[in-house]
Amino acid sequence: MTAWISEFVPALFRQWAFVLAVSPILPGVVAKTKAWVAGRQGPPVIQPYRDIVKLFQKGAAYSRTTTWIFRAGPVISFSAAMAAVLMIPIGGMEAPLTFQGDLILFAYVWGTSRFFTMTAALDTGSAFEGMGASREAVFSCLAEPALFLGLLTLAREAGSLSMSDLLSVGLIRIWSIHAPALCLVTTAFIVVFLTENSRIPIDDPNTHLELTMIHEVMVLDHSGPDLALIEYASAVKFFALGALLVRIVYPIRSGGFWAGGAVLGIGLLGLSILVGVIESTMARLRLARIPQFLAFAFVLAGFGVILTLAAA
């Protein structure tokens, strides 16, 4: 028992340290890429760290309409993000938390985070935030089936229900036999990734227009440390879902935590650049067209499932 604890606890904190240290740089890289494509200097890549630190140092303003729910929202979304990353294998080894079925918990933890973010948004009694919550509700609910079907494809290929097995070395072999299915899943996951992280073409994180945003408008009234938690949580979410994508596309062979972590980090930087390029070359979808886009992702993931099922 004590041996298990002495192994488990350091792994836990190592994972958190890595994620907390790496994740804020990713939005910074996206912003830098966008600036670079647009021919601008752009903010330094470490700007998100500065923002978070600055926000933690600030005071906060609360609306008189709000209740404890408004204050609980950021805490829950940050905790959920921190819990979810424990299921992601960083290096070539297993994640600190792994069991058969952890992929379901992984997907649902984000659901908890979303639920409380939405209720916190509605707590302000503002039409803007209601609008954001309504959009978040519908789009995330449509992205969910695509995510699950994608995970199912991977699970079927890996023969396991654990994220650590799904994203293991075995993927290399699977790529060599079932490349089409994996490509379909990757495409679907990119869509889910963009949706969940409120990126163009689903959402435009940079616009200041309350009427068109999704995620940003939900957190309009949060300030100070609460906003810092939200920003940090969304960076961690970017990391977690991004790591899922990177691990699929580039299965990490072996290596310890830090060597594998470095490879993963490089992959995530690449993903951030890719997101920056996507944001620089695509217009945002009209809101009414987003379900269509997500249905497309769902169909791709479903096709992936069919291919793996038919291959048996």
Partner: peptide, 8 residues
Amino acid sequence: CADVGFLP
């Protein structure tokens, strides 16, 4: 263009 999020 900026409003539709088309940066180039």
